[in-house]
Amino acid sequence: MKLVYAIIRNENEDDVTAALMQDHFVVTRLSTTGGFLRKGNTTLMIALEDSDVERCIELIKAQCGRRQQITVNMPYLSGSSLMNYSSMPTNVEIGGATIMVVPLERFEKY
């Protein structure tokens, strides 16, 4: 057995979980926060058989398209003033998913 961790943007969460559940995957959702953009993410945990891993990943990829977004990231400076700080808008790629597959020694559901 394997455990798939999929970190996705909150905006994709409904579509991804619906697609996975329609294909009879059991999904557990956790609310998480990204480091770079400090935006809300959802981490999905999916326990499945080894033979189902590729199908699961393809379903996630199909729902998490990448796109460009302009953002202004203000730095976190503890105890400092930002009055003289100038930040330029940055074009970043958003969307997609971070997927990790790890061995699962035991899985029980009551």
Rank of each mutant, 00 (worst) to 15 (best):
K2S: 08
I7P: 00
R9W: 03
N10S: 14
E11P: 01
N12W: 05
D15Y: 07
A19H: 00
D23N: 15
D23E: 15
H24P: 01
F25Q: 02
F25K: 04
F25A: 03
V26E: 07
T28N: 07
T28I: 13
T28L: 10
R29Q: 10
L30F: 09
T32S: 15
T32C: 13
T33H: 09
G35N: 08
L37P: 07
R38E: 15
N41M: 08
N41E: 04
T43D: 00
L44C: 04
M45D: 01
M45W: 03
I46H: 00
A47F: 06
A47S: 12
S51R: 13
D52Q: 15
V53F: 02
E54K: 12
E54T: 13
R55I: 09
C56Y: 05
E58G: 00
E58S: 08
Q63L: 00
G65T: 08
G65S: 11
G65L: 11
R67Y: 10
R67F: 12
Q68E: 15
Q69W: 00
I70Q: 14
T71D: 07
T71Y: 04
V72W: 00
N73M: 15
M74W: 09
Y76H: 11
L77D: 03
S78D: 13
G79R: 01
M83Q: 15
M83C: 11
Y85F: 08
S86T: 13
S87V: 15
M88T: 09
P89H: 01
T90V: 14
V92H: 03
V92S: 07
I94H: 03
G96Q: 07
I99T: 04
M100A: 12
V102D: 05
V102W: 02
L104P: 04
E105T: 09
